[in-house]
């Protein structure tokens, strides 16, 4: 890799990290940063252009767009964090069980995975929300349920390759129990890969959450969420394009930032990919 590309890549990563940090900061400190109440309706100032008091203007109900964007980051990242936690928990349990215990457990669990892998995730998630009912919690469950199978497969294959290492046999010879060997020798290397996978998937999950909310299946209208905001702004797309562009821009920027970060992390942590960022 030439010096120049490495330099540009590094710049991209720094920019991505900065943007991701801004989004994350907005999500964490939304109540402190947001200038106004994101739910405060004031029909007298509806659809007002950007100006002092409302830096990015107001929407069709006179709510402050900037505040709604900041609170939207919280809804978006919060649900993604919950989804990833669920996915990692389920898939680690399934992957370890299938990979380490093997035999019948492996066969049964992997067939269940296959079933989930055959459906397109978004359609399956919509179907699940249809069964469970709309709402944030159900969206989280639905998206987690449609994504764990990918992770479980990867974790299983990692566990399979690790369990045949000689140091695992050495640990067994000293009389270590299965759980201890899993915790000490198998999970640490697995978790390194898992971090990369999860970071690469943050953007993807954000799109899912926003997509479902846009369709009215996820976060319900009064609460601020980017997908909901885009949906609200549909009728004003010609008169007030900023109402649809701003949340769109937020989704675009944060998905891109997290994808770039994930790529950089993979380059750093995965020994199979090239030497990594201009180090």
């Amino acid at each position: 890799m030439s010096c120049e590309t490495a330099f540009w890549q590094r710049r991209m990563v720094i920019a991505a990290a900065f943007l991701a940090a801004v989004v994350l900061g907005g999500a964490l400190f939304a109540p402190l940063i947001a200038p106004n109440d994101p739910l405060a309706v004031d029909l007298t100032i509806r659809l007002s252009p950007p100006g002092p008091g409302h830096w990015l203007g107001t929407d069709h109900l006179g709510r402050d767009v900037l505040s709604r964007l900041i609170w939207g980051a919280r809804a978006s990242l919060g649900s993604v964090a919950a989804i990833l936690c669920l996915v990692v928990l389920i898939s680690t349990a399934v992957g370890c069980l299938a990979g380490y215990v093997g035999g019948k457990a492996d066969a049964v669990l992997m067939r269940i995975c296959d079933v989930f892998l055959t459906f397109p995730t978004f359609i399956l998630a919509m179907f699940m929300v249809g069964i469970l009912g709309t709402g944030m919690v159900n969206v989280i469950i639905a998206i987690a349920m449609t994504h764990w199978a990918w992770y479980a497969r990867i974790i299983r294959s990692l566990v399979l390759s690790l369990r045949n290492r000689k140091y695992v046999l050495a640990a067994r010879v000293t009389g270590s129990s299965r759980t201890r060997i899993l915790g000490r020798h198998i999970l640490p290397p697995v978790s390194a890969q898992l971090v990369v996978l999860a970071t690469l998937d943050i953007g993807h999950m954000m799109l899912h959450v926003a997509g479902l909310s846009f369709l009215g299946l996820g976060v319900q209208p009064p609460s601020p969420e980017w997908g909901v905001m885009i949906n609200d702004a549909r009728q004003y797309i010609w008169e007030h394009p900023r109402l649809i562009m701003l949340p769109g821009l937020m989704i675009f920027v944060s998905v891109m930032a997290f994808n770039l970060l994930g790529d950089a992390l993979r380059d750093r942590l995965d020994p199979h990919v090239s030497k990594g960022m201009g180090a």
């Binding site: 290492r165 140091y167 046999l169 050495a170 640990a171 067994r172 010879v173 009389g175 000490r184 020798h185």
Partner: peptide
């Protein structure tokens, strides 16, 4: 498990791969 380690132990070939590199 109790017997392994206490009563019997194994020494393997290629010692480089018999230790977990993280520990």
């Amino acid at each position: 498990r109790q017997m392994l380690g206490r009563e019997a132990a194994l020494i393997m070939q290629n010692p480089m791969s018999c230790f977990d590199p993280l520990h």
